[in-house]
């Protein structure tokens, strides 16, 4: 018998308000390892805010957020930084590739920061896996939207995270590229043993992730 899969994310009774306006009111959910989750919701409903809470970039007003068994909200700043670094790969909505560095160097830097060393064979493997081998030495602004998205996916994976959060990874892509990116995310997460949490308003993704949850506007 396999040991029971560990819990990767656990959100309980989460409340979050910005400037007195409630963005998230009483949200709870959990993911065990390998349980990829699609978090659907219209624009402005609070998906990005939730990702900020999960990654410790924002602090909840009530409730708890725990990542791999550690309560993010109760940790001091440096502890959050460390928990995030050890556990989570983030794919930002605006990608945030560093424009002064080549794709490869973006990956190397991310790996250095996450693990303290650079493993070029791992990096080359990831670059090959996301299919941007021929663009590895290009600057981010020379990439197409689809290529840049793939580069950001590869970067989120270089530190061997247990959780990958992706904010609108397909919203800016056409159907063809959206399919490539969705499959890539799933394939890579399986391959690297990471659990996916994808926040999006893109209904197309329901076809790839059966496990979904719809975020409603807080009352």
């Amino acid at each position: 018998m396999d040991a029971p899969a560990p819990t990767v994310t656990a959100v309980a009774n989460l409340h979050y308000a910005i400037g007195g306006r409630t963005i998230i009111g009483d949200l709870s959910f959990a993911q065990k390892a390998g349980e990829h989750l699609l978090l659907l919701g219209a624009s402005g409903v609070g998906k990005t805010s939730l990702i900020n809470l999960l990654t410790g970039l924002a602090t909840p007003d009530k409730g708890s957020v725990s990542i791999c068994g550690e309560d993010m909200a109760s940790l001091p700043g440096a502890g959050r930084d460390d928990l995030r670094r050890r556990t989570t790969g983030i794919i930002f909505q605006t990608l945030r590739l560093i424009s002064a560095l080549s794709v490869r160097d973006n990956l190397r830097l991310a790996q250095l920061l996450a693990t303290g060393s650079v493993d070029d064979s791992k990096i080359n493997g990831l670059i090959d896996a996301v299919g941007i081998t021929h663009r590895a030495d290009a600057r981010p602004r020379q990439l197409s939207q689809g290529e840049a998205q793939r580069a950001a996916i590869a970067r989120a994976l270089v530190g061997k995270p247990r959780l990958i959060v992706a904010d609108e990874p397909t919203s800016a892509l056409d159907d063809h590229n959206a399919e490539i990116v969705a499959k890539l995310l799933l394939d890579r997460a399986e391959e690297e043993g990471a659990t996916l949490l994808i926040a999006t308003h893109d209904q197309r993704l329901k076809a790839y992730l059966p496990n979904s949850m719809t975020l409603q506007k807080a009352a």
């Binding site: 990654t55 970039l57 930084d81 460390d82 995030r84 670094r85 983030i90 930002f92 945030r96 560093i98 424009s99 002064a100 830097l109 991310a110 920061l113 996450a114 530190g159």
Partner: peptide, 13 residues
């Protein structure tokens, strides 16, 4: 600023 913020988020002290 945003690059450097990203570095912090990715684990730079």
């Amino acid at each position: 600023e945003k690059d450097l913020a990203l570095l912090r988020v990715m684990g730079a002290t």
